[in-house]
């Protein structure tokens, strides 16, 4: 990735500048350390940042139980400052169901990847959604089994190169991808379903609002809530880290379309989502031009 060189000298960026007000910290408060062993350019830590910030803003972090699936993001189970249970592959929604039914006042959510949720435990999330369990499931979707070597998953899009689809996913041979957000939104028990992405700062900010809304849905007792987040996996996609966001937006993002798929029982069409995305992207770009999005 080549970018034009900025003008002017290199400024000191080791210490806080004098006379300036800090508006954003290194890491979210609910993360004990910012250090982790995920790859350069991975999108998962960006999603971790926003769900932790959403919980903190709602003031419920001490009343929250996280149920972790198995994937690269599982590394964060050692560093997030939340009560936490580790589930087996794909079983997190069922574990979350049990916890919520025993402790109905807790905010209970799962953190899962596409390999975990859509391959290994697809029935768990579907039944949990259909029953309208008052839990939230968060899916980090990158279309590969990142942790175990980058093989194709059920959400890999047609044409996507992975370790087990080197020539690109071929419908004839590998079948079609499962659009899990769309599937869940059709289930009656699902109250709020959204698909976010972390391909740029505006998308990260929108994803945070979706996560807040999902947790609010649970707090209001309205039913099952679901937020899928598209995250970069440059390692699994065989691409340079800096190309990750655009690659993701143009491939996975074209099929797994970002947006609020179901709000107040109303399911949106793909055309409606596309139109909304164009409008929202213009809005955030204008906000960034003016000097910052609402954090």
């Amino acid at each position: 990735m080549t970018t034009s060189q900025p003008a002017g000298p290199v400024l000191d960026s080791d210490a806080a500048p004098e006379g300036a007000r800090k508006i954003a910290d290194l890491k979210p408060d609910l993360l004990l350390t910012g250090e982790h062993n995920l790859c350069p350019g991975c999108g998962e830590p960006l999603a971790v940042r926003v769900y932790l910030e959403a919980l903190q803003e709602l003031g419920v972090s001490r009343e929250t139980v996280m149920v972790a699936g198995i994937g690269c993001y599982t590394m964060f189970t050692g560093t997030v400052d939340l009560d936490l249970v580790q589930a087996l592959h794909g079983r997190a929604p069922s574990v979350a169901t049990g916890i919520k039914r025993m402790l109905p006042d807790k905010v209970v959510f799962t953190l899962q990847g596409d390999g975990d949720m859509v391959n290994e435990g697809l029935q768990e999330v579907l039944h949990t959604a259909a029953r309208g369990e008052r839990v939230t499931c968060i899916l980090l979707n990158n279309g590969v089994f990142g942790e175990t070597g980058g093989h194709m998953t059920a959400t890999s899009v047609l044409g996507q190169r992975t370790k087990s689809s080197l020539e690109g996913r071929d419908a004839e041979y590998h079948g079609y991808p499962i659009l899990i957000g769309d599937l869940v939104s059709r289930l009656q028990g699902a109250a709020y379903v959204a698909r976010g992405s972390v391909h740029n700062a505006g998308a990260v900010a929108r994803t945070k609002r979706m996560l807040r809304r999902a947790f609010e849905t649970q707090l209001a007792g309205d039913g099952f809530s679901f937020v899928e987040v598209l995250t970069m996996c440059p390692t699994g996609w065989f691409i340079p880290t800096a190309d990750g966001p655009d690659y993701m937006h143009e491939t996975l993002g074209e099929v797994h379309v970002m947006g609020e798929l179901k709000v107040d029982g109303m399911v949106k069409t793909t055309e409606e989502l596309h139109a909304e995305n164009v409008r929202k992207q213009h809005e955030v770009e204008a906000e960034l031009e003016r000097g910052g999005v609402d954090l």
């Binding site: 300036a20 954003a24 993360l31 910012g34 700062a201 999005v293 954090l295």
Partner: peptide, 15 residues
């Protein structure tokens, strides 16, 4: 704060 929101390794503070 766009840099902070896209940095996977939490390297930025913004003022």
């Amino acid at each position: 704060a766009a840099c902070l929101m896209v940095c996977p390794d939490f390297c930025f503070e913004v003022f």
